[in-house]
Structure formats: structure tokens, C-alpha cells
């Protein structure tokens, strides 16, 4: 089952010739990319460009119609326990936080480690508390999600993803649902994570953040990757007209 981990598989995430359709709409066109360990990859592009879909195919929240997705040398299984196991290794942070509304903040962070990884309760709680402290919401541990601000909820969602010791974390427009004054607190946590060497794939509209934190930027339009490069190069001199238009509109 497991593929041999030779040199070509040092990438944590690798996509090979991925195609996806929504009905007759070709939303991902022959996408190939790889994310190295410790790399921060930022995906930008106009809405409807397929960047969110791309992010969601990485842990197969969206199925693909052709191509291959390889996580740390292991091809993504299509279903079942194997798929769940692989997903447990990749964290995800959503636009709308998606905390479990019936559980306390602490339980939100402990639940998956205890139920999926079978971490003992005491250990899971201690780890959760330290993660909550790290993202700055330790005081809210015993509240339920609805009692927290959006920024706080998103930071809890990051802690929840971190609690699984993921090999990488996917961020699907993590600040798009936030009020402007809360965006900063979430981006700060993400910047900190990037500094610590977390492998991250981030779909975002925050160009300043992309400039400062990304190791590499991908520009997508109409389901294809049009440009790929270092942020300083891309933002200073985009090669395609589409990218120039996109950046000009901001």
C-alpha cells in the first residue's frame, strides 16, 4: 500500500495533474504542485478561480476527477478508514470557523485527539490548554463557541487543528468572514506558526500577509495556475496580464 519514500517524495503535499469538474464546469485544470516541508504556500486569485476548491481537494473534502494527490509519499485513498487516517495528518482551518457548537472551547480542541488519535483524556486536556494559551484564548476554555468573537473562534479553530500534530495545515480564506478589527489577531497567530516552521497552504485575499509571510505565491485564474514564484518577484513584477489586472484592482 505505502509507496516507497524516495527522494522525489520529500514534498509533504504533492498534486499531479489534478482535474476537477462541477458538472460541465472545469474548475481545476491539470493542476500540479508540491509543497515542501516547512514551506508556506499562499494561493491567490479572483473569486471563482478555483483556489478554494484546490485547497479543499488536498484533504479530499472535494473529490477529484483525474490526477493524483500524495501526502508525505502516500497517495490519498478514495474512502474509508484510510482516508480518515490521512486526513488526520493534515489540519484545516475554514472560512466560517466550523467549531462544534455543542462543545466547549476546550472540548473542541480535545475531541479529535481523544477520539481519533486515542490520546488519554488528561494528556489531551493539558495539550489543549497549552495550545489555547498559545493562540491567546485560554480564558475562554469553558465557554461555548457562540460566546466568542469571530476572531477568537478562528484562533480556537487553529488550536483545534494544531492539537492533531498535523504535518501541514490548510487555511481556506481564514479571515474572509471576520470583521476588519479581528483579522489582525488571526494573521498574527498564522505568522507565528509560519515562523515556527509549520507547513502551510493558505488561500487568502490578504496581500500584505502574503508578501510578508509566504515562501511562494501561486496565482490562479479560471481553474489554472497562471503564475508561481517568490512573493517579492510576483508582487513586484507579475508576468501575466491577468495577474496585473487582479493586483491592480486591489
Amino acid at each position: 500500500m505505502k509507496q516507497t519514500q524516495n527522494e522525489s517524495h520529500t514534498a509533504v503535499i504533492e498534486l499531479r495533474h489534478v482535474d476537477k469538474f462541477f458538472g460541465s464546469l472545469h474548475v481545476l485544470k491539470d493542476i500540479s504542485l508540491s509543497v515542501q516541508k516547512g514551506e508556506v504556500l499562499v494561493i491567490i486569485g479572483p473569486s471563482g478561480s478555483g483556489k478554494s476548491t484546490l485547497c479543499r481537494t488536498i484533504n479530499r473534502l472535494e473529490g477529484i476527477d483525474a490526477g493524483e494527490i500524495i501526502i508525505d509519499g502516500v497517495p490519498m485513498p478514495e474512502e474509508g478508514k484510510e482516508l480518515a487516517n490521512l486526513r488526520a495528518q493534515i489540519g484545516m482551518v475554514f472560512q466560517s470557523f466550523n467549531l462544534f457548537s455543542h462543545r466547549t472551547i476546550l472540548d473542541n480542541v480535545c475531541l479529535a485527539p481523544m477520539d481519533v488519535l486515542k490520546v488519554p483524556r488528561k494528556e489531551a486536556r493539558e495539550k489543549a490548554l497549552s495550545l489555547l494559551e498559545r493562540v491567546g484564548v485560554q480564558d475562554q476554555a469553558h465557554k461555548v463557541p457562540a460566546q466568542l468573537s469571530g476572531g477568537q473562534q478562528q484562533r480556537v479553530a487553529i488550536a483545534r487543528a494544531l492539537a492533531m500534530n498535523p504535518k501541514a495545515i490548510l487555511f481556506d480564506e481564514p479571515t474572509s468572514a471576520l470583521d476588519p478589527e479581528m483579522i489582525g489577531e488571526v494573521l498574527d497567530v498564522m505568522t507565528e506558526l509560519a515562523r515556527e516552521g509549520m507547513t502551510m497552504v493558505i488561500v487568502t485575499h490578504e496581500m500584505n500577509f502574503a508578501k510578508n509571510v509566504a515562501d511562494r505565491v501561486i496565482f490562479m485564474d479560471a481553474g489554472s495556475i497562471l503564475e508561481e514564484g517568490k512573493p517579492e518577484d510576483f508582487f513586484a513584477a507579475p508576468k501575466t496580464q491577468r495577474a496585473r489586472d487582479f493586483l491592480g484592482k486591489l
Partner: peptide, 8 residues
């Protein structure tokens, strides 16, 4: 339900 795989 997820998009079913071949087994599902």
C-alpha cells in the same frame, strides 16, 4: 456523505 469511492 462524501463522494463515494469504489468500495462505497
Amino acid at each position: 456523505y462524501e463522494a463515494p469511492g469504489p468500495k462505497a
